Simulated scan of single mutants.
Amino acid sequence: MASVSSTSNTTSNSNDTALPSAAVNLNDVSELQNNFISLMVAQVQYQDPTNPADSSQFINQYSALSQVQSLENLNTIQKNSLVLSDNLQNLTAAGLVGQQVMVSADNVQLDGITLNGQAKLEHASSTTTLQLTNANGVVKEVQLGPQEAGLMSFTLDPEALGLPAGKYDVAIKTSSGEIPKVEIGGVVSNVRVSSEGPVLEVEGIGSVPFYNIVEFGAGTRSA
């Protein structure tokens, strides 16, 4: 009987040692869980009846293993959700080719085509001015007149304004001191997929990240 007790103690000690090392192997959570259960059954089967293992240790270790598995599953779900979100964003962007969009922009590329623009005013303005600054720093001011609070629309006709083709910084000044964000409408000619998301080529504006689009199907382009 003494020899049996010695063998059981040795088996129990061996399993106690192997159990934690198996529990930290995260390469395959499913296989890890199966191994843990097999080790737990073997340890219970061969434990010393006079010195049984503490069952609370099994419960704590199995609970910790379950938490690891839950975290792994959650991580997988999150990764799949991100991939799905990226694919949906790319599909949405691709569907905008040939469509009119309104983009938040601080510069425009004038090449003879009339562009539609808008800005949201928080306060009424008795004097509202659209400023266009070319690459040489020359400023062209367009008076938009008094404006009420709310959405204000305007057009950019390079020919009527006597503006040669080129890139211009665009800004709106108001009598209230407010400097609203300028939104310019243009047609999407193509979409490029990048590591930071889809980039749209918008007529009259240039390359625009997808998140800079503020409105879809905004008005129509004037020829």
Score class of each variant (00 low, 15 high):
A2W: 11
S3G: 10
S3C: 11
S5F: 08
S6H: 13
N9W: 07
T10V: 10
T11R: 01
S12F: 02
N13G: 10
S14I: 05
D16S: 11
D16A: 08
T17V: 08
A18I: 01
P20V: 03
P20C: 07
S21T: 12
V24K: 05
L26N: 09
E31P: 02
E31F: 01
L32D: 01
Q33I: 13
N35R: 05
F36W: 10
I37Y: 11
S38T: 15
L39Q: 06
L39F: 12
V41F: 15
A42I: 07
V44P: 00
Q45Y: 10
Q45G: 13
Q45C: 12
Q47A: 04
Q47N: 09
P49Y: 08
T50C: 08
T50R: 06
T50N: 10
N51S: 13
A53R: 01
Q57P: 03
Q61D: 11
S63D: 10
S63N: 12
A64W: 02
S66D: 12
S66P: 03
S66G: 11
Q67L: 09
V68C: 02
S70M: 10
E72Y: 08
E72R: 08
N75E: 05
I77Y: 13
Q78E: 06
K79F: 05
K79I: 03
V83P: 01
L84E: 15
S85H: 14
N87V: 13
L88V: 13
N90T: 09
A94I: 09
G95P: 09
L96Q: 00
V97T: 07
Q99G: 15
M102V: 09
L110S: 02
I113F: 02
T114S: 05
N116M: 07
G117Y: 01
G117C: 05
G117V: 04
A119P: 00
A119K: 02
E122H: 04
H123S: 14
A124K: 03
S125P: 04
S125H: 06
S126K: 15
T127Q: 11
T129P: 01
L130V: 03
Q131V: 09
A135D: 04
V138F: 07
K140V: 03
K140G: 03
Q143N: 14
Q143L: 13
G145D: 09
P146E: 05
M152N: 08
L156G: 03
L156Y: 06
E159K: 05
L161N: 02
L163D: 06
A165E: 07
D169E: 14
V170H: 06
T174V: 08
T174M: 01
S176N: 15
S176W: 04
G177M: 15
E178P: 06
I179T: 15
I179Q: 10
P180L: 05
P180H: 06
E183C: 00
I184C: 00
I184Q: 00
V187I: 15
V188D: 00
V188A: 03
S189D: 09
N190H: 12
V191R: 00
V193G: 03
V193Y: 14
G197V: 12
P198V: 05
L200K: 05
V208K: 01
P209L: 10
P209G: 09
P209E: 08
Y211V: 10
Y211H: 15
N212S: 14
N212F: 07
I213T: 07
I213M: 02
I213Q: 01
V214S: 01
V214G: 04
E215D: 14
F216G: 09
F216W: 12
G217M: 13
G217S: 13
G217D: 12
A218D: 07
A218T: 05
A218N: 12
T220S: 14
S222N: 15
A223N: 11
